[in-house]
């Protein structure tokens, strides 16, 4: 175990702690949606993402189609392609093709944020250290949430259902406070989603989300084009 790996791990500890509590909520949600503890944990191990997993579980619970699953995952997670694109410019030459294929697994909002903030190039060992500790937190939290969901008092386990949504609000509200373009986009997306929910029940939840998000992001891009994308 080398120095860079340990450095990546230490930088990843705050991420792992955050993931632990959020994925605890995901585990509870997944079990409440009818999945087993093992299935919930495997989803976290193989996906390593919050919004995509939450939406994926909704689709599984509703018996949605695989096409719906593919489109929902593409829509929710397409942001990772931008992060990957950005990080690809920042990789050390030790990053050969096999390393790139492996590190791709661990690109999340938070890992991207911490990696982008590093000065200098990223080595495989550093990224593996961070991804490893973050994934441990994410999977362990899911496992315990999914297991304890059966033992916790009903009032507590059902209240944990709000954890992921709380985190989403914490992601979108601060930038909306700073930029009216983001405020415009999230307000429009919420409005459309609410209209779908209450008035257009012929459209499934997954597609309602996609349509709401695409219209609002396109409107945002039309009315408030971004000159420079900041990391």
């Amino acid at each position: 175990m080398n120095n860079k790996f340990l450095k990546g791990m230490s930088h990843g500890i705050p991420i792992a702690l955050g993931y632990f509590s959020v994925s605890f909520g995901f585990g509870i949600k997944a079990v409440m949606s009818g999945l087993s503890v093992a299935e919930s944990s495997v989803i976290s191990l193989t996906n390593l993402t919050s919004a995509g997993q939450a939406a994926g579980v909704d689709i599984i619970a509703a018996g949605g189609s695989l096409l719906e699953m593919i489109i929902v995952q593409l829509t929710i997670n397409i942001r990772y392609s931008l992060m990957s694109l950005s990080l690809s410019q920042k990789l050390d030459k030790k990053f050969t093709m096999p390393h790139r294929l492996l590190a791709s697994y661990g690109i999340t909002d938070e890992i991207f944020a911490v990696c982008s903030a590093q000065t200098g190039l990223l080595t495989p060992a550093y990224m593996y250290g961070m991804i490893f500790i973050a994934a441990v937190g994410w999977v362990l939290g899911t496992f315990l949430g999914a297991s304890a969901g059966e033992f916790l008092p009903q009032s507590i386990s059902s209240a944990m259902g709000i954890v992921l949504y709380g985190m989403f609000l914490a992601i979108i509200i601060p930038p909306a406070k700073k930029e009216k373009s983001v405020l415009f986009v999230i307000s429009l997306a919420a409005l459309l989603s609410i209209i779908f929910y209450y008035f257009i029940d012929s459209v499934s939840a997954g597609f309602a989300m996609i349509i709401s998000a695409i219209i609002s992001a396109a409107a945002g891009a039309f009315f408030f084009p971004v000159k420079e994308i900041k990391n």
Binding site: A51, R79, S158, F168, I172, V182, A189, Y198, A213, G220
Partner: peptide, 27 residues
Amino acid sequence: EFVRSFLHYIPYAVLSAMTLPAIFYST
């Protein structure tokens, strides 16, 4: 510029549409 802007706004739009109104039924 349009595609870059669209991709910039997509995460916010997705999270907002996922959260509302679902958060009011989450517990």
